[in-house]
Design a protein around this nucleic acid. Structure first.
Length: 601
RNA sequence: GGGGGUGUAGCUCAAUUUGGUUAGAGUCCCAGACUGUCGAUCUGGUUGUUGCGGGUUCGAGUCCCGUCGCUCCCGCCA
């Protein structure tokens, strides 16, 4: 008989009745009847009830054992009598009557209670992550993650992709987020950087002729956390393809993602091809470049109708380059006054100057701005917004950018408050045709709006002849239920277009040569047209696991302040280590309090 | 860097309007009882710098100021 187990704790059924078996696992729960003891033994695979009889020599010992102790039990499988079958457990038809018991590892009382549904405090959960991971929900999330990644590998390989590794110690790049730096011992004063993404390497692999690349790639960015953004590091399904058009790439990614979501979720998935929404249209219709298409509300521009109206507040905004966006909502005429007032308050919180609205209630139209509108303007609004009885239309008027973000926030809020967001569906879409450049109000200059490596639509000619702010890029995002899963692009693979694009963004050719020497040089020796994308693995698993915080799908996450409470990182290092690295600390003056938790480093 | 929420026993939470005796309950833990439970049950018991520091007051968990932790958001995230 195997030293530890003949079966797992999720395995035994009534067919095993009478078998002599051995199980090992953790004591999940105990029910102590004084002269009869039930132990629910748990391992990775499940739970099995073990019965300890009063005449067992180890009865007292087992009684004293605390929950979460690890034991090995040898005994006989017995089918339970009809009244004692537990239908809630897969192994509920049997139990194991213990004949011998070995204590592998006794447990102290645990700082987290593992047999309940309630989460403990976040810092305790992180500090004792190995205990939290024993709980079913988290345990399942991590297994889901493993299976998703394994399925991704199968699917990518089936599509003809090869998996690569790229360096973790690389060099700092001038664009993007803050880098994590690693000092060099051999080269005093010089640093490696951890890659924010393997962007340059994957493009160089295309130049090297490998054709179809993928990697489950760790990415490191020193940026602050959000609920859906783990600080420090995260994983991408990094993809790059040669000789590919945008549509071909979409087809591959749609197949992989739809396949994954179909395999690992019961929710409905909008079938491929996913809708393709131009960026400019998304900003008007949904007020966002990551629209949640589950919300059945679409905004419309009504600037022209108000431009000539008697409502001076809006009229003047339009006259000075602003817009008016209408948010039509079905069946809200019977909502109380407070519903409308609260929404006006919300609009102000979002930075709006206010929120106008009209309500169609039977024969009557109501609303604070009604008196400013002529009959034909009202008719035009009804037509433009597809208004029917009992509908309301909200109006936001501001500069285009603000109007989009405010109306977008209102759209999401309405979706939530009115319960319009179906939670049994994954609604994917592509947002395409992002602008190549944008105007930076702060520096009063033109900057890259996404990344400088995208191919401008129309190529060199577009860059040379069009208004830079009108040039679109082969730059796209894939979005699911309002979550941005990834950006991607067809890349610019020619030096002359690269020089020109950087010139428009105010960079001298020498700057391009200095900052991206590897890519630029590589492109001088024959580079294939190529493009790619890099969906976030953590976010995909988060959606599939129905979790609202990304920590719930990461085995060992950091807290919001980028600390690993379990390992105690980041931490101080010895003077000797610093000396070898030619570093001298220059710590901030203000050392707070006696509390020494390393947080002021 | 800024804004919001929160902090009471190991854990989950309570403590009445504007502040009033020795800060309670469940769970965990400890002891005892119990042969069919499955979140076992029953009896008894231990557990507190009310995050920390200061202030107002005859009196502070409660009010004020500061500070710290956790968290959500903004900034940031090619």
């Amino acid at each position: 008989m195997h030293k530890y187990r003949t079966h797992t704790c999720g395995e035994l059924r009534s067919e095993n009745d009478g078998a002599e078996v051995r199980l090992s696992g953790w004591i999940f729960r105990k029910r102590d009847h004084g002269s009869l003891l039930f132990v629910d033994l748990r391992d990775h695979y499940g739970l099995t009830q073990v019965v300890v009889q009063p005449d067992s020599p180890f009865f007292d010992e087992c009684q004293r054992l605390r929950l979460e102790s690890v034991i090995t039990v040898t005994g006989r499988v017995e089918a339970r009598s009809d009244e004692t079958v537990n239908h809630k457990m897969p192994t509920g038809a049997i139990e194991v009557v213990a004949e011998t018991l070995t204590i592998e590892s006794a447990s102290e009382p645990t700082p987290l209670y593992l047999a309940g549904d309630e989460d403990g405090p976040e810092d305790q959960r992180l500090r004792y992550r190995y205990l939290d991971l024993r709980r079913e929900r988290l345990h399942n999330n991590i297994m889901l993650r493993s299976r998703v990644i394994s399925s991704i590998r199968r699917r990518m390989t089936a599509h003809g992709f090869e998996e690569f590794q790229t360096p973790i110690l690389t060099c700092s790049s001038p664009e993007g987020a803050r880098d994590y730096l690693v000092p060099s011992r051999i080269h005093p004063g010089q640093f490696y950087a951890l890659p924010q993404a393997p962007q340059l390497f994957k493009q160089l692999l295309m130049v090297a002729g490998f054709d179809r690349y993928f990697q489950i790639a760790p990415c490191f960015r020193d940026e602050d956390a959000r609920a859906d953004r783990s600080p420090g590091e995260f994983y991408q399904l990094d993809v790059e393809m040669s000789f590919v058009t945008q549509d071909e790439l979409f087809e591959v990614i749609e197949d992989v993602l739809a396949g994954i979501f179909d395999e690992f979720s019961e929710k409905k998935i909008a079938v491929a091809p996913f809708p393709r929404i131009p960026y400019a249209e998304a900003m008007v219709k949904y007020g966002s470049d990551k629209p949640d298409l589950r919300i059945p509300i679409e905004m419309v521009d009504v600037s022209d109708i108000f431009a000539t109206s008697g409502f001076n507040a809006f009229k003047s905004v339009v006259a000075s380059g602003g817009v008016v966006r209408a948010i039509p909502v079905k069946n809200v005429a019977s909502q109380p006054r407070s519903f409308f007032d609260k929404l006006v308050g919300f609009a102000t919180e979002q930075g709006g100057k206010g929120l106008a609205y009209l309500v169609w209630d039977g024969e009557k139209v109501k609303g604070p701005i009604l008196k400013f509108l002529a009959e034909e303007e009202l008719t035009a609004l009804v037509e433009r917004c597809n208004v029917t009885d009992q509908d309301a239309v909200f109006f936001v008027s501001d500069k285009p950018g603000l109007a989009s973000s405010i109306s977008g926030a209102i759209r999401v809020k309405l979706g939530q408050d009115l319960g319009l967001i179906a939670d049994d569906v994954f609604h994917f879409c592509w947002v395409v045709d992002f602008p190549m450049f944008e105007f930076d109000a702060e520096t009063q200059s033109i900057i890259f709006s996404h990344n400088p490596f995208s191919m401008p639509q129309g190529g060199l000619e577009a860059l040379e002849t069009k208004d830079p702010l009108e040039v679109l890029a082969y730059q796209y995002d894939i979005v699911c239920n309002g979550v941005e899963l990834s950006s991607g692009a067809i890349r610019n693979h020619t030096p002359d277009v690269m020089y020109k694009a950087f010139e428009i963004a105010g960079y001298d050719p020498s700057v391009v040569e200095e900052q991206f020497p590897s890519l630029l040089n590589a492109f001088k020796y024959g580079a294939p047209p190529h493009g790619g994308i890099a969906p976030g693995i953590d976010r995909i698993v988060m959606l599939l696991a129905n979790e609202s915080n990304i920590r719930e799908v990461i085995a060992f996450p950091m807290n919001q302040r980028a600390q690993d409470l379990m390992m105690g990182s980041p931490s101080e290092v010895s003077i000797q280590q610093l000396r070898e690295l030619h570093l001298k600390l220059n710590l901030p003056k203000k050392q707070s309090g006696a509390e020494s938790d390393g947080s002021n480093i």
